[in-house]
């Protein structure tokens, strides 16, 4: 449990640091997760090593729990040559094959059907695993939410749909996203259970996801979980929430901060000494600062890697464009 607290603190500190780094122009973009730490850490802890994760682009705490070093995350945020995805994507769009974390895209909801397909594949291979898709309240309006949940229901796949309802899809509040009373109740239409859970309560999320996983691997099918949280920060560094919501609303939500809540619980349980939080925060600040500095100092991506990984083997057309680029002829390689 103390590990859970540490991961949540590291995630919060990373948010604070990255918002500032983006304003300094040292990283290009950032999508903060503040307010969603318990939902992410609780869910990730309930899954097993061999399970497959289909995150969106806000799941930094999930990666930490899966054992991804902060340094690897910062290599991606910076987009340097050590980024395992070779600097191909905007910050936050990270994935790590060795930990079964699939690389997300920016379009909303598209990973939901992937999680269902991977679950179908796992069953075909008789692998007793579950897949989990992470998405937000906005994604419940997407095509792939409907398609994915419908396929999952029809085929009874071992899939967990974890909706972090953070109340805001950029500027659109939850009540304008859908007239459904809860997002979880949408599962009724697809013929499987949906549960609402307090996403600020690490233990509640952990229990809900553990139960859903147990059902999944017993062959009892998918579960939709709505973890109710609140997005403390902006959607991303590209928006200003003051345009669409009040400071009072945010302040009220911060009263329910999942990290403070966990700290109180840990102190009460005697796992954490009162006042010992300070050292954990200090350690996290140091770790985050060091990870960023190392990533910022790493070599830039090699320009010729532009042409790699389009296909396993470059086509003659890509080969010609690459040669033209290497020769300084711009992108029109192959012209006489």
């Amino acid at each position: 449990m103390l590990d859970a607290y540490r991961w949540m603190v590291v995630a919060r500190v990373t948010d604070e640091r990255c918002l500032s780094l983006q304003r300094q122009g040292r990283i290009g973009f950032y999508a903060p997760l503040s307010g969603q730490e318990a939902a992410q850490v609780g869910a990730a802890l309930a899954m097993q090593e061999e399970d497959w994760f289909f995150p969106a682009y806000r799941e930094l705490a999930v990666a930490l729990v899966r054992g991804i070093p902060l340094r690897s995350i910062f290599d991606q945020l910076v987009g340097n040559s050590l980024d395992v995805s070779k600097g191909r994507q905007m910050p936050n769009h990270f994935g790590f094959r060795d930990k079964n974390i699939v690389v997300p895209s920016s379009p909303i909801g598209t990973q939901i059907t992937h999680a269902v397909g991977a679950a179908m594949a796992a069953r075909r291979r008789h692998d007793p695993i579950a897949t989990i898709a992470f998405f937000g309240d906005g994604a419940t309006s997407s095509n792939d939410f409907h398609a994915g949940l419908n396929f999952a229901g029809v085929f009874g796949t071992p899939t967990i749909f974890l909706c972090q309802n953070n109340q805001w899809a950029i500027s659109l509040p939850r009540e304008k996203q859908t007239r459904s009373a809860t997002l979880a109740e949408k599962s009724n239409a697809y013929g499987f259970p949906g549960v609402v859970v307090d996403g600020n309560d690490l233990n509640a999320v952990y229990r809900a996801v553990s139960e859903a996983r147990a059902r999944a691997v017993r062959g009892e099918g998918p579960t939709l979980i709505e973890a109710q949280v609140y997005r403390f920060g902006p959607h991303s560094t590209s928006d200003d929430p003051h345009r669409y919501r009040s400071d009072a609303e945010v302040a009220a939500a911060r009263e329910r901060d999942p990290i403070q809540r966990l700290a109180r619980g840990l102190v009460q349980a005697g796992v954490l000494e009162a006042g010992a939080e300070k050292a954990i925060w200090e350690t996290a600040r140091g770790d985050v600062a060091r990870a960023f500095e190392a990533a910022e100092g790493a070599p830039a991506v090699d320009a010729l890697s532009l042409f790699d990984d389009v296909f396993e083997t470059r086509t003659p057309q890509l080969e010609a464009q690459r040669s033209g680029f290497a020769a300084g002829a711009g992108s029109g390689g192959g012209t006489p």
Binding site: V84, K86, R88, R97, S105, D309, V310
Partner: peptide, 8 residues
């Protein structure tokens, strides 16, 4: 394949 740097 591209966005994962060849991982996927």
């Amino acid at each position: 394949r591209y966005r994962s740097g060849g991982q996927y």
